[in-house]
């Protein structure tokens, strides 16, 4: 148990993290059900109806539904981790209940970590839900590399929780918290190899795709689940970790400066 100036840090962290988890569990109809419904539709339409007619080079030789599973799981993990932190932290700011945290002796890193844990729990839980849904459509799924799968799952939701946090720090209105998910995240995810292998693209578009960070996240995860990837795993993992470190440092700096939270 860590103590900082006689304050029981683990209690403060536990309080915030469990508050965050309770928040999305309480509104489960808005947080946990939609990804299950949307992803079922993807599996029905693309997996079962259109999938059998898709050429195998699009999917590195895998059945289309099987190929989609890691992509759709990643898509849900990314959007849910991000959405959880951006909306929770923004509403805490908006309702001024952030003062409850700022007035307390909690160090900034605990505040950040508490929100990130909330985002990771939702991201991972939704990922598991979508995986369970996918088993209805492809019951024989076997995870190629469980350790890599779990590592990427956690790293991805940490990364996007951090990005949600930074978005919320800068947000001044409810519009500000939906602009990035709608106009940046979603397009990048859709073009990031969730639905196809970039090997099927013409050279030009393949090069363009390679600057899309989502491609690395999705493909690393696919390597874990299926054992196939369009990108180098070591490179992707190091980039993900590098970004996690950079965004953590940035978040702590913003908290220390009080950007968006202290006048």
């Amino acid at each position: 148990m860590k103590h900082e100036n006689n304050i029981n840090i683990s209690v403060t962290l536990w309080t915030l993290a469990s508050k965050e988890v309770r928040r999305f569990m309480r509104i489960w109809v808005q947080t946990l059900v939609p990804p299950a419904v949307t992803m079922s539709l993807y599996f029905v339409i693309f997996g079962s109806l259109i999938g059998p007619n898709i050429k195998p080079e699009v999917t590195d030789g895998f059945a289309y539904v099987q190929y989609m599973i890691p992509g759709l799981i990643m898509m849900s993990v990314i959007t849910n981790s991000y959405a959880n932190v951006v909306s929770s932290f923004y509403s805490v700011k908006f309702q001024k209940s952030i003062e409850e945290l700022l007035i307390s002796p909690m160090p900034n890193w605990t505040i950040l970590l508490g929100f990130i844990i909330g985002g990771v729990c939702r991201g991972v839980l939704v990922g598991i839900i979508v995986f369970c849904v996918s088993l209805f459509f492809y019951p024989d799924f076997e995870i190629a590399n469980p350790l890599l799968t779990v590592i990427v799952l956690f790293l991805t939701s940490i990364l996007f929780s951090l990005m949600g946090f930074i978005n919320a720090v800068y947000a001044d209105s409810f519009d500000d918290i939906s602009v990035i998910p709608t106009f940046v995240l979603t397009p990048l995810i859709y073009l990031g190899g969730v639905f196809y292998s970039i090997n099927m693209l013409p050279d030009f578009w393949r090069s363009v795709s390679q600057v899309n960070p989502m491609l690395y996240v999705v493909n690393t995860f696919r390597e874990g689940m299926l054992g196939t990837s369009d990108v180098s795993i070591t490179f992707s993992l190091s980039m993900i970790i590098l970004f996690i470190i950079s965004f953590s440092v940035l978040s702590l700096y913003l908290l220390k400066r009080g950007t968006g939270i202290r006048e």
Partner: peptide, 10 residues
């Protein structure tokens, strides 16, 4: 919750 933020055990 406010008590928890001050590090007071439940």
């Amino acid at each position: 919750t406010q008590a928890g933020f001050y590090g007071i055990k439940k």
